[in-house]
Design a protein around this nucleic acid. Sequence first.
DNA 1: TTTAAATCGGACAAATATGTCCTAATAAAA
DNA 2: TTTTATTAGGACATATTTGTCCGATTTAAA
Lengths: 144, 144
Amino acid sequence: MFSKACEYGIRASTYIALQSLEGRRVSLKEIAEEIDSPVAFTAKILQQLSKNQIVDSLKGAAGGFEIQRSGIDRIKLSEIVYAIDGDTIYTGCGLGLKKCNANKPCPVHDKFVQIRDDLRYMLENTSLYEMTVGLEVGLTYLKR
Amino acid sequence: MFSKACEYGIRASTYIALQSLEGRRVSLKEIAEEIDSPVAFTAKILQQLSKNQIVDSLKGAAGGFEIQRSGIDRIKLSEIVYAIDGDTIYTGCGLGLKKCNANKPCPVHDKFVQIRDDLRYMLENTSLYEMTVGLEVGLTYLKR
DNA sequence: TTTAAATCGGACAAATATGTCCTAATAAAA
DNA sequence: TTTTATTAGGACATATTTGTCCGATTTAAA
């Protein structure tokens, strides 16, 4: 569904949001440990998320990553996916045709539109805050 | 969503089904032309589909690929996807966790289960015959 | 029996995705 | 001011996916 980079990106953002809610800024090292991802690769992804203003980064000692409370409420999964994987998941043809659309559809166009629209709706309506709710009480997990 | 190989595989199977309905056996070369795919790569995929008994192949002059009428009705997209991409699209976690399940779910487990189930239902209930219906009358396309 | 047209299958090549390493830049603390 | 802990970013390395090439095998037709 998503690239590895995107999976790590969602998990990292969610962990940062969770800790930011407690007022804790977190380091790359801690993030990678807590979401069980390769450190240096995660660094690249966080750079990208920072450039796309999904996470805030602060250099130097006591630096790290955080997300403003307003961001935690506002940022949706769709924005993270878009920042890393682009929009192919929404716009691409299920059978890989370059110019597939309602006018010249592939044989599964309508069926895919429906499923992709459901996926898009879900991603556009799931905030980082919502992602953290189960984590706090141990109902959901970010590794294993 | 699917790998390139799987996209080509679905398009190739659909074209073979369409021609088999007319009693025509088709060559690799014709298939690759009609679905706009790389010839040699398509050959590999057809080998795989042949081994998985999704298409019948005949060697030698006047050989080629075909699908029995019974197969055209019976074979579902899910079988093609499974033969090429395996079952990760059904069973894999949306966030890439290895042991994500209802007991220890990731934060989007339930939401992904729903979308994946819809996708699975669609793939398991779309036959090759259904894929060909629109093609015959020029309502749907396999290239561009 | 020979030739031609086709798939099969192994080895190779290129492109992309994933992952690592090292140095520079930054900022807090000693 | 120096040291230390951190992110930024470029170059490199590895793995996987995508794609190519070529000889072997098969079968129909000449």
